[in-house]
């Protein structure tokens, strides 16, 4: 029976790691795609930085409507926690370690950067900023 236990253990581990690796592969692919976009936008592009991404996430600014705003307004100061939209809908955590499905669908990533950068920064974000942001969210343990 011992051998069966071992097989069971291996199967379980394989399942879990396969799923997780597929997910992290998907987010790596998104970073790669953003890097490509960044290179096209700026030939001097070197790499993405998680700490710059964190700064982007935390920096507050005054919106033209007079209100103080930042990513934290809806996502809270802790990306591992659930956020809340201004219309009372729960936003799943941003940190990929807590919510592995984050940053696995490029269409979704671009859609929300477009909307949220326009809302918070009142402009679109550069590919460098998007990559920094994603890298930060993927680096949180």
């Amino acid at each position: 029976m011992r051998i069966l236990k071992i097989i069971k253990f291996i199967t379980t581990i394989t399942f879990i790691s396969l799923t997780l690796s597929q997910i992290s592969e998907a987010s790596e692919a998104i970073l790669k795609e953003l890097a490509k976009e960044a290179r096209t936008a700026d030939i001097k592009f070197v790499q993405f930085s998680a700490s710059t991404g964190e700064k982007l996430f935390r920096t507050e600014r005054i919106h033209s409507n007079g209100e103080k705003i930042s990513c934290m307004t809806c996502h809270t100061a802790d990306p591992k926690k659930e956020g809340l939209t201004r219309a009372n809908k729960v936003i799943k955590p941003m940190a990929a370690s807590i919510n592995p499905n984050r940053f696995t669908d490029m269409e979704k990533v671009q859609k929300w950067f477009k909307r949220n950068c326009n809302d918070v920064q009142e402009r679109i974000c550069t590919p460098q900023e998007k990559g920094d942001f994603v890298k930060y969210m993927m680096s949180i343990k």
Partner: peptide
Amino acid sequence: MIFFRLKKEPLLLF
């Protein structure tokens, strides 16, 4: 992990 508590073979997982 619920999987570890299962007494049956890995087949059950499948």
